[in-house]
Structure formats: C-alpha cells, structure tokens
Design a protein around this nucleic acid. Structure first.
Lengths: 110, 110
DNA sequence: ATTTATTATCGCAATATTACGATAATAGAA
DNA sequence: TTCTATTATCGTAATATTGCGATAATAAAT
C-alpha cells in the first residue's frame, strides 16, 4: 500500500496524473513562473526568491525535469534552467484535451 | 517536515497547486471521466469499473468534492455524483491562465 | 422488524513526499 | 594549488498519501 495502483488505469490516465502531480506543488509552480518570466535562470536565483533550502529547490527542479517541462544546461559552474516550450505547450494541450471532454449535465438533479 | 511550506507561496500558487494535486491521481481522473460521460453516477458504478476497493473510491470522491469539481446528491439510499460544470470550467480557466503566461524563450542557449 | 444494499468513516500498514543539513563534485578565481 | 561558489546527492525525520478490511449509518425491500 501507499503506492498508486497504476496497472488499473490507462496509459493516458497515468501519464496525465503524473504530470498534474508534479505540477501540484506550489514550489514547483513558483519555479516555473520564475523561469518563465526571467532571463537568467540559475538554481541559486530560486533559492534567493523562494524561502526553501537549496537542497529542496534542487529536488523540485529534478521533478520538473522528469516531466521535461524544463531543461537545464551547464554554463560554467552555474546551471541554466529554461522552459521547454514545446513540452510546455504539449502539456497544456494534454490537460485541455482532458477538460474538453463532453460533460453530461443532465445526470444529476440539482 | 513532510509538510508543504504553504506560507512561503502566494494564495494563487497554493490554490492551483492544490487543484492540480487532487487531479494528479489516475483514479480521480478515471472517476471524472466516468462521471463526465455517464448518465447515472453512483459510487458503486466506479467500484464496478475501477478495480479499487469501495473504501478507496469513496476516499477519492471525497478529495474531488473538496475542490468542488464534483458534487453529490443523495437519492434514496444511493448517491448521485455529477460534475460541477461551472467549477470544471473555472478550473480549466485557472490552469490555462497559468499556461498562458509569457515564456522567455531566449533565456537558455540550447 | 429484519434483512439487504449502498456509501462513509475508522484504523491501520505500506509507501511516498517534503524539507533540510551535511557532504560531494566541479569549475572558476585568487 | 587553494579557496570559493554553485549545484546535486545522500541520509534522515516528519508528515502525507494510498489502499484496504472492518464497521457504522442509513434507506429501501421483504
């Protein structure tokens, strides 16, 4: 227990759930917002802006990298993170596809 | 520890993160899909469709109710769940607002 | 009144997540 | 080379989540 029973669900459901789960943390949203609007995006920037330990920020960055919504390049001793715009839009698309499904509004008598 | 440091983030970030977190589970996506497309939506329907114990389904329904994306009405001894369409669309809007923020694409040399 | 069907809740075990200090690893500066 | 800055990773503690069986609660059926 404690583990999600992924075998029970479709690939699509698991994939979307995983994306949403990663996005479902305020620190990760804050990081994304900051990367999106800023020019130079190194990990230390986040540490200065967001009141979390450097180790914690680094962990969150790793999660975001896993769903490929951001990517990092090494530039000297610093790390430069940026949005993977294609993936960003793809994710937006996947989410919207979910929300655009037809909703039966006549199923409940409210 | 183990707790998200919500004080550190904006109301908006926490709110969106919370919504995404709830949506970030395949069982809850499956439930939403089933409610959305079906006509009669009682808890037992989910138990028959989704291979999870009744107690587990009930718990997931509770999570979904918390963000008000679904609502339930008692009809006899059965429970009728349906999508809260207004909220559904509002959530879609909140998510899209996040994704529509301007992305600096020239921040990383890739 | 008793039984049955339906759903919520409780209590628990297993696992995951969050956060952080300490430390490693690396590159540039002195 | 030695020091410093930057970032990742390890280990760990606290808490949260997931899932389930058992049980409670309620309404309908018998």
């Amino acid at each position: 227990m404690g583990t999600t029973k992924t075998q029970v669900f479709t690939e699509k459901q698991n994939e979307l759930a995983n994306i949403l789960k990663v996005l479902g943390h305020p620190a990760r949203l804050a990081i994304l917002e900051q990367i999106a609007k800023q020019d130079k995006c190194i990990c230390n920037d986040f540490v200065l802006e967001i009141d979390l330990a450097q180790a914690t920020i680094s962990q969150h960055l790793k999660e975001l990298k896993k769903i490929e919504i951001i990517q990092g390049t090494i530039s000297g001793k610093k790390m430069s993170y940026c949005i993977n715009k294609e993936r960003w839009e793809a994710i937006q698309g996947i989410i919207n596809q979910f929300f655009k499904q037809n909703i039966q509004t006549n199923n409940c008598s409210i």
